[in-house]
């Protein structure tokens, strides 16, 4: 009997709105993204080695493009794999 009624929450569920994403480069003032250190670039690719989209990383357009070129350069130099499984 209670199941047909919609579940009442004590306060509004916060699942809907998530926290405001920010561009980490603007905030920390990083100006150059180096293609030679993989630890930093690993934050921007997923387990299969694909580049994460902006809506996930929250980067600004300018820095997302720089990250993409840096990752592609690292892949060219075999620092990062093109295709990987369980990279992290």
């Amino acid at each position: 009997m209670a199941a047909d009624k919609s579940i009442k929450f004590l306060n509004a569920p916060k699942i809907g709105q998530n926290r405001k994403k920010y561009c980490r480069f603007k905030r920390t003032g990083i100006r150059y993204i180096d293609f030679k250190d993989p630890e930093f670039l690993l934050k921007f690719i997923n387990e299969q080695g694909k580049i994460l989209p902006r809506r996930i990383t929250g980067n600004s357009l300018k820095f997302q493009r720089r990250i993409a070129t840096a990752i592609k350069r690292a892949r060219h130099l075999a620092i990062l794999p093109y295709v990987a499984d369980l990279l992290k």
């Binding site: 100006r31 150059y32 180096d34 293609f35 350069r73 060219h76 130099l77 075999a78």
Partner: peptide
Amino acid sequence: MRFLTVKLDKYAVKY
């Protein structure tokens, strides 16, 4: 086997 030459701008040089 593989090479990559990159031009450095002023931020890259500082880095």
